[in-house]
Write a protein that binds this DNA or RNA. Structure first.
Length: 737
RNA sequence: GAGCGAUUAGCUCAGCUGGUAGAGCGCUACAUUGACAUUGUAGAGGUCACAGGUUCAAGUCCUGUAUCGCUCACCA
């Protein structure tokens, strides 16, 4: 037996300096090409027929900067990806950014307004789009830099942007195919119109705000038999009916009768109808039906065959009826109608109530329900799905988009890590209405439809002279819905698509469960007959140390990039995922981050100790004594724990297990107890002990790597060759027991 | 109005299929030139929201109550 001590690299004489290593490490990883699974297969690191692990990055809005929410997302996903990669899986993580049509256009318009005092109409469609492209290009590289800083091992060779050429082709193809299947149609329906943003928005983009309002109770005319209650008096000039509950004894005798009245200079023809939608307890138990300006009323009109649906409010939230209300804003008109009612002695009651007002999420404008000609996706219409891999839906059978969304989850093909979100998802589908996909803005995927007089053609290229393209663009979630397969080359039948779709897992904030997750299920089901992913992992909001939402007004924002500079990326990553339960909100504070910086340094010093006391020997086998065996058994138990937790997607518990093992078992016990043996005269004990420490160190570095990639890789690079099974820790063999 | 979640140490939270209460931060005392300027040891601190029930045994399972929070719908 021979003993030889080895030299300690000088770098360990100082505390771990994250700044000095992170950039270098990332460059080393990236230039290895091993973020790309194809390169990994070429180099013989990953087996060609290995199990795949694929995931798309939820593309951040191109307007954005990295905040704690996106940092959490990148941390969780990178941990999963690095774990899978070390397990030898053929691992692909696709990066991208989202054009976020409305948000981006609004942002650029705002800048132009501020700097040049011009509106988009001053610039024109083409010029505005140029400006947006320039903005996007500038912001894109900034955002990519931040993703790198988080250590995200994304395959940059597959980078996608929702507005790039390949994705544009996919979106166009998708629209055309869905239209051909009869699921996309153009129709006049009530939309949520945002007068401030001058566009429609989807149901999910509405935020309800509680406000005080006056509930007016009045009669249309002196001899009208039923008083009605409303908070929106100004819309009453668009009424066509009064609805009462069919069982309401007070009004039974009037059902079916029709009345003509002159209401505020406007002639109205009112039919009394019976509808179960009406709550007899509310107000007078009678509802004035204004089909053009209320979702519910539109549906009541549908049910009773009322075709007269006069619009009385325009896109600027101004009155369009002839008479003295004409041109007034809705709130002025409301007061004017009240005045008129008082003068005519028709107003019976005014009371204060609180009600929820619909506002637009992006602009804060009060949403005005208006009937408009829009493009819709019909989620209830049956169509034939030629190919289906979704249990419960046969290839070639008739189904609906709703059914696809339901079956994918009900059959267990898609599983939610947090089960309660599965119920939320199902509940949402049950209440789903047609999806309005057209937006009246300029930035986005323009609808591939051409109009000429009464004719219409659905195609990408102009059919010729005098054909005008539909001015609207698609809802940004239409293109996002295609993301799992548009990033893999669809509509082309690429190898990527065959190899990596359905993706293994989707990780995203629960706030876009409906916007995005559900729409991906819809799109992927329709176009591929597949689920887009097998597992849904939802993370919650990142709150501050006191559990408050992070907001500008509270000034409690913690900027991840600042924290990275101060404490290192590993510390930031760890502090984000510890004490985090999938699907629930989590908290972060600077103290917490600092704590994990200490841990990074601890790892550094453990490594220093092991290397300082390292002995090299030639023996192949080691005769462990009982104490060694106990130590190694504890290591194995930790490996089992970590693997179990990763299996059940509990990153927080996996991190907890390895953290406690490394600090409180390896450092505090194994190393402390080893000191006597290392200083002692027994050569074989020295060798055996050092061997044990080296083994535990390399195994610990591997277990830690997915969570703290930088410090572990930095140490790994300093280890002598005989301690390692791979040049890069990133692709070293994951420990198994 | 409907659905869902939470309530465990001063603070933030773990605790999986029931078996003597855990971590981090904070606090107290002591030790320490140490592999560690970022250390160690020890300690204080909990009727596990409340009330019932199942069980040999209940933070853990069941029922109810209270408080807080989230999501959806929306009353005109």
């Amino acid at each position: 037996m021979e003993e030889k001590s080895s030299q300690l690299p000088e770098i360990f004489l100082k505390p771990y300096d994250a700044q000095a290593h992170e950039k270098k490490c990332y460059e080393m990883w990236e230039s290895s090409g091993l973020f790309n699974p194809d390169v990994s297969v070429e180099k013989g690191i990953t087996q060609k027929d290995a199990e795949t692990f694929s995931m798309v990055l939820p593309p951040p809005n191109v307007t954005g900067h990295l905040h704690m929410g996106s940092a959490l997302m990148l941390a969780i996903e990178d941990m999963m990806v690095r774990h899978a990669r070390m397990q030898g899986k053929r691992t692909l993580w696709i990066p991208g950014t989202d054009s976020a049509a409305i948000a981006t256009q609004a942002r650029v318009e705002k800048d132009i307004q501020k700097e040049e005092k011009k509106t988009r109409h001053d610039l024109g469609r083409e010029e505005l789009l140029k400006r947006i492209d320039a903005f996007v290009e500038k912001n894109k590289s900034h955002m990519i830099g931040q993703m790198r800083a988080m250590g995200a091992s994304l395959d940059w060779s597959r980078y996608a942007y929702t507005m790039d050429d390949a994705r544009y082709d996919a979106v166009m193809e998708a629209f055309i195919q869905m239209h051909a299947a009869g699921l996309i149609y153009r129709g006049n329906r009530i939309v949520n119109w945002d007068p401030k943003g001058q566009t429609t928005i989807s149901d999910d983009e509405i935020v309800y705000e509680e406000r005080k309002a006056t509930l007016y109770t009045f009669k249309y005319s002196k001899d009208f038999p039923i008083p009605v209650s409303t908070t929106r008096l100004e819309t009453k000039v668009g009424d066509v009916a009064v609805a009462v509950h069919p069982d309401d004894a007070r009004y039974k005798e009037f059902v079916g009768k029709e009345y003509d009245v002159m209401f505020c200079d406007v002639p109205l023809h009112i039919t009394i109808v019976a509808d179960t939608e009406v709550d007899p307890e509310f107000g007078t138990g009678a509802l004035g039906v204004t089909p053009a300006h209320s979702h519910v009323d539109w549906e009541i009109a549908d049910r009773h065959g009322i075709t007269n649906r006069p619009a009385v409010i325009n896109e600027y939230a101004k009155m369009t009826v002839a008479g003295h209300l004409e041109g007034m804003k809705v709130n002025e008109a409301r007061e004017a109608v009240a005045e008129w009612l008082r003068a005519e002695d028709l107003l019976e009651k005014e009371e204060e109530i609180t009600q929820n007002v619909s506002t637009a999420e992006r602009t804060g404008g009060i949403v005005e329900p208006l009937p408009k000609l829009q493009w819709w996706i019909d989620v209830d219409k049956t169509f034939t799905l030629p190919h289906s891999e979704i249990p419960g839906i046969e290839s070639g059978s008739e189904t609906t988009l709703k059914e696809i969304m339901r079956s994918a989850v009900k059959s267990g093909t898609i599983q939610f890590v947090s089960e309660r979100h599965e119920r939320v998802y199902m509940n949402w589908i049950d209440n789903l209405r047609p999806w309005c996909i057209s937006r009246q803005i300029w930035f986005g995927h323009r609808i591939p439809v051409w109009h000429k007089d009464e004719e219409m053609k659905v195609q990408v290229e102009s059919p010729g002279e005098s054909w005008e393209q539909d001015p609207d663009v698609l809802d940004t979630w239409f293109s996002s819905g295609l993301w799992t397969f548009s990033t893999l080359g669809w509509p082309n039948e690429t190898d990527d698509l065959k190899t990596y779709h359905p993706t293994t897992l989707i990780e995203s904030g629960y706030d876009i469960l409906f916007f995005w997750i559900a729409r991906m299920v819809l799109m992927s089901g329709f176009f591929l007959g597949q689920v887009p992913f097998k597992t849904v992992y939802l993370h919650g909001l990142v709150r501050d140390g006191q559990g408050r939402k992070i907001s500008k007004s509270l000034g409690n924002n913690i900027d991840p990039i600042d924290m990275i500079e101060k404490y290192g990326t590993d510390a930031v990553r760890l502090s984000l995922v510890t004490n985090m339960v999938p699907g629930s909100d989590s908290r972060i504070s600077e103290d917490k981050i600092r704590g994990y910086k200490h841990f990074a340094n601890k790892i550094w010093n453990i490594s220093r100790f092991v290397l300082e006391n390292r002995t090299v020997d030639t023996a192949k086998e080691t005769q462990w004594d009982d104490a060694d065996k106990r130590d190694l058994a504890e290591l194995d138990a930790t490996i089992t724990d970590v693997n179990g937790h990763m299996e059940s997607h509990r990153i927080d518990l996996a991190v907890d297990a390895v953290y406690h093992y490394v600090w409180h078992t390896f450092a505090d016990e194994v190393i402390e107890r080893s000191k006597d043996a290392l200083k002692g005269d027994d050569v074989s004990a020295r060798i055996r002990t050092s061997r044990k420490l080296q083994h535990i160190l390399t195994t610990s570095l591997k277990l830690l790597h997915p969570f703290m990639p930088f410090v572990t890789e930095a140490v790994w690079q300093e280890l002598p060759k005989d301690m390692k099974d791979a040049e890069l820790l990133m692709v070293a063999k994951w420990p198994r027991t």
